[in-house]
Structure formats: structure tokens, C-alpha cells
Design a protein around this nucleic acid. Structure first.
Lengths: 111, 111
DNA sequence: GTAACAAGTAACCTTTTGGTAACTGGAAAT
DNA sequence: ATTTCCAGTTACCAAAAGGTTACTTGTTAC
């Protein structure tokens, strides 16, 4: 079940609710990046170079609070942290797949 | 084909491109509202009361510039303006349907 | 003669979001 | 003795997004 920020809201519209959870400039891309694999912080950062590390850390924290992904910290030196989608996060895959499909068909320049 | 703001960008990631088009707090809800019917400005405003009329007008203008909907103005008094999805706008329906479905299953409180 | 109608716009302000640069930690390699 | 590794955090600043209130327009109803 959804936790964190989303839980507090009494949502009447399912689309509004979704946007409160995964709206914003970066969250769908982060989820898309984690879709099939767990990844380290630096790995996500390298795959989405346009996002600053500060904002990436913020967004990951919110996604974790909302129950969409888990953060696992290994107490090694240098540190290692892995992010992985929860079952709830994975349940977003159909949405992300439709987004990917639409983008492929309508936005990629076939030149 | 996509026009306006989205056309200028060289998009490498389909999900990033989609977000540039329909990202933001309101656009998916507006598109969802117009999904199956043409609607007047006041009608959209009434169905999405949380959005201010100023922001609604701005978002509708951007969606029109991006080729997702059409604006038809009837020169009557009082004025009448109708908004309707284009074919491109309608092609977003699978995305919006997945969003609606996910929201229904995960956000609506069954209490 | 004034108010209401629809669909906005203009001026102004607040909130949210995002960016940069510098810094932290302890162990390891140079 | 200094630099590198990684995953951040902190302080600070700029830009974007969004909100509020008042105003417009021309015709019709009170």
C-alpha cells in the first residue's frame, strides 16, 4: 500500500493522485531507470546526467517515503547504496511502458 | 506530428520527452478531462476546481501549441470556446488509462 | 442604470523547484 | 602527506510555477 505523503491525501481523482506521487520533472525518469534493475546512486546519476546530485537525492528520498523504492546501504568504505523498486514501484511499469511507447512513436526523430 | 515546444528539442529519451509535453501539475488531468468529449472552458474549470482560471488558460494554450488539442471560438455573446483533443491528443489515451487504472487500484481508499 | 454572463488578461506576489559550489566521512593508493 | 573513492549534505541563490484580485468585452435581463 501507498505510504508517506500520498497516504495523507484524500484522493478523489485517480489521475490527480498519481501525479502527486510521480509528478515532477524527474520521478518518472528515475523510476524508468530503475525499472528492471537495482542501481547505485552514482549509476543513476550517470544515466540521468541532467539531474543534479542534490535533486536526485531529494527525489529518491521522496520515492522511498512513498513506498515506491527501497534504499539499501552497505557499510563499506567507500560507501555503497543501492536503490530498487518495491512491488508497488514495479506495479507502475505498465504506466511507464505506455509512456515509453508513446514517446518512441511520437517524439523520436526518425530522420 | 508534435509541434511547438516539443518539436525544438532533440529528445534522446522517450520518457523525458513525454514529461516535457505533459509534465506539470495539471496537464494530465486536463487531458483526462477532455479524453472523450469536447468541453467549454468553464466546464473544464468546474470539473477541476482546484486549478485557477489563469493557470488553466496557460496550460490549455501550451497544449494547443503542442498540437494536443484544438481551441474553437464561437463569436457569440456571451462568448463560447470549446476545447477538443486532436488525434495526437487522443493517442495519449492509453497512457492516461494506465494512470487511471493504477490510481484506482492503489490510491482510492476502499474504506 | 446596473448586474450577470463567459472566457479570459494584467499586475502582483508567494511557493516550489532546481542549480552551484563547497564540504563531510574513513580507508586506500600514490 | 595528499588524493581518490562514493554518497551524499549544507548554504545560498535563481528560475519556474502557481495563486489572488481586479479588470475587460458586448449583449441581455432586472
Amino acid at each position: 500500500m501507498v505510504t508517506g505523503a500520498a497516504k495523507k491525501r484524500e484522493v478523489k481523482c485517480p489521475v490527480t493522485g498519481m501525479i502527486q506521487l510521480i509528478g515532477g520533472k524527474w520521478k518518472p525518469i528515475i523510476l524508468y531507470c530503475l525499472r528492471s534493475d537495482k542501481r547505485r546512486f552514482g549509476e543513476i546519476s550517470a544515466r540521468i546526467p541532467a539531474i543534479s546530485r542534490k535533486v536526485l537525492a531529494e527525489q529518491l528520498k521522496e520515492l522511498e517515503e512513498d513506498g515506491l523504492l527501497t534504499r539499501t546501504q552497505y557499510n563499506e568504505i567507500p560507501p555503497r547504496v543501492e536503490y530498487e523498486l518495491t512491488a508497488l514501484g514495479k506495479s507502475l511499469n505498465p504506466v511507464l511502458n505506455e509512456m515509453e511507447k508513446w514517446g518512441m512513436e511520437n517524439l523520436m526523430n526518425k530522420s
